[in-house]
Measured scan of single mutants.
Amino acid sequence: TETAWISLVTALHLVLGLSAVLGLLLLRWQF
């Protein structure tokens, strides 16, 4: 169904966004 796909895509986007923010924070901490 479409709702399942939409929720799955939004979850993936949230995970990608969180990982990107965490990566930037880690880079700032290291340097």
Rank of each mutant, 00 (worst) to 15 (best):
L8E: 06
L26H: 03
V15N: 05
R28G: 15
S19L: 10
L25P: 10
T3V: 07
A11C: 12
L24M: 07
Q30W: 15
V9Q: 10
L12C: 14
G23S: 04
W29M: 00
V9Y: 11
L26F: 13
V9I: 06
R28Y: 06
R28F: 09
L26R: 07
A4S: 12
L16Y: 02
Q30S: 10
R28A: 15
S19T: 04
Q30D: 10
I6A: 04
Q30Y: 04
Q30M: 03
L8N: 13
G23Q: 11
W5T: 10
T10A: 03
T3F: 09
G23C: 04
A20E: 06
T10G: 11
I6E: 06
W29Q: 00
L12F: 05
L16I: 02
G17F: 06
E2F: 10
W5L: 13
L27E: 03
V21Y: 02
E2I: 13
S7W: 01
T3R: 13
H13E: 07
L26K: 14
L8I: 11
L27W: 01
L22C: 09
L24P: 07
L22V: 12
L22M: 03
A20K: 11
W29H: 00
S19G: 05
H13Q: 02
L14S: 09
A20I: 12
I6V: 05
Q30H: 01
R28D: 14
L18R: 08
L12M: 01
L18T: 11
T10Q: 15
A11N: 09
L25C: 14
W29Y: 00
S7D: 12
T10Y: 12
L24I: 10
R28L: 08
E2P: 13
G23V: 02
S7F: 01
A11K: 13
L25S: 09
I6H: 06
R28M: 04
W5E: 08
V9P: 10
A4T: 06
V21P: 15
A4Y: 12
L26A: 13
T10H: 13
L8T: 12
A20T: 08
L22K: 02
Q30F: 04
G23T: 11
L14P: 05
L16H: 01
S19E: 08
V21I: 09
L26W: 02
L14A: 09
L16S: 00
H13F: 14
G17W: 02
E2Y: 04
V9G: 08
W29A: 00
G17R: 02
L22A: 12
L16F: 11
L25N: 12
L24K: 08
S19H: 04
W29L: 00
G17D: 05
L12K: 03
L22W: 04
A20Q: 05
A20R: 13
I6C: 01
L26E: 07
L8G: 11
V9E: 02
W29F: 01
L24E: 09
S19V: 12
L18N: 10
A20Y: 05
A20W: 14
V9D: 06
L24G: 12
G23A: 01
Q30L: 06
T3Q: 08
L25D: 07
V9T: 14
A11M: 07
E2T: 07
E2A: 04
T10W: 11
T3D: 08
L14D: 03
G23E: 11
L22D: 11
L14F: 07
L8R: 13
V15C: 01
S7T: 08
V9L: 06
T3I: 03
G17T: 08
L14H: 02
L18P: 10
F31C: 00
V21M: 06
L8H: 12
T10F: 09
V9S: 12
L27P: 07
L12E: 01
S7A: 02
A4K: 15
S7I: 01
L27Y: 12
L26Q: 08
W5H: 15
A20C: 13
G17A: 05
I6G: 11
S19I: 04
S7V: 01
A4H: 13
A4G: 02
A4C: 08
Q30I: 02
Q30R: 06
R28I: 05
G23H: 03
V9N: 15
L8F: 06
W5F: 05
V9M: 05
H13S: 09
V21T: 15
R28H: 08
V15S: 00
